[in-house]
Amino acid sequence: MDKANNTDILPLELKDVNFEVGGMRLIKDMTLTLNAGSSTIILGPNGAGKSLLLRICHGLITPNSGSILWRGPSRNEAGIYQAMVFQRPVMLRRSVAANLHFGLKSRGTPKAERDRIIDDMLQITGLTRLARSPARALSTGEQQRLAIARAWSLKPEVLFLDEPTANLDPAATHAIEETIASIKQSGTKIIMSTHDLGQAKRLADNVLFLYRGRLLENAVAADFFNRPKNDLAQAFLKGELLWWNRKELKTPAELKHRDVLKK
């Protein structure tokens, strides 16, 4: 299907979104538009607000101010066109197949179709031989593949992935990236966070660069990786950000804020 022209809920618009916990602003004045067709990778160091942004977009967290608007024709039931994969896969204490079944049942997929979809998904993700195994007995890589299969089985228009390979070895990461590429091929919009630059280069069409709750750069991937405009993004791409300090721009309040975060 050609999602670029024929969408259900996309594009997604965020306007002046702020989110704070205990007086600390963790997402600051975020304004952006996400369109169908391309994969968007959210880049940034730990604590940049990548996970929060995904959760806010997906509706798991309500921001303190600002608006999140789905612009497509089915916006009133936007939830059923989305799915999310978390950093640590959430496995129900059931078999692999039953984990897939639960997702389909929750979304109201007709009974008659469930078994066929489950078989297909197991095959595509290479989990068929494990269908009857308890999901929690799987390796972390297999669990994450199952989590992605469960999300994909819902045929979402938008799939959110929160650092899905953060805990995985290179082989498992490779398998997950291949699956994500297939999901993109099938017409699903990928919105994924990562702090792995190589992975971002492999998967991104567009990049959102976040730093301490702010969106510092929103660019086409090639432009971002070749000519990042923001100085913090330049430092991040050189792998220097963790010890890099933009001292001249910091007010005492911000420094204090950072100390609070450290604690």
């Binding site: 798991l60 799915a83 959430v90 997702g103 929750s106 979304r107």
Partner: peptide, 8 residues
């Protein structure tokens, strides 16, 4: 989070 995401 997973249950909310699935809409259970």
């Amino acid at each position: 989070d997973q249950f909310k995401s699935l809409g259970a």
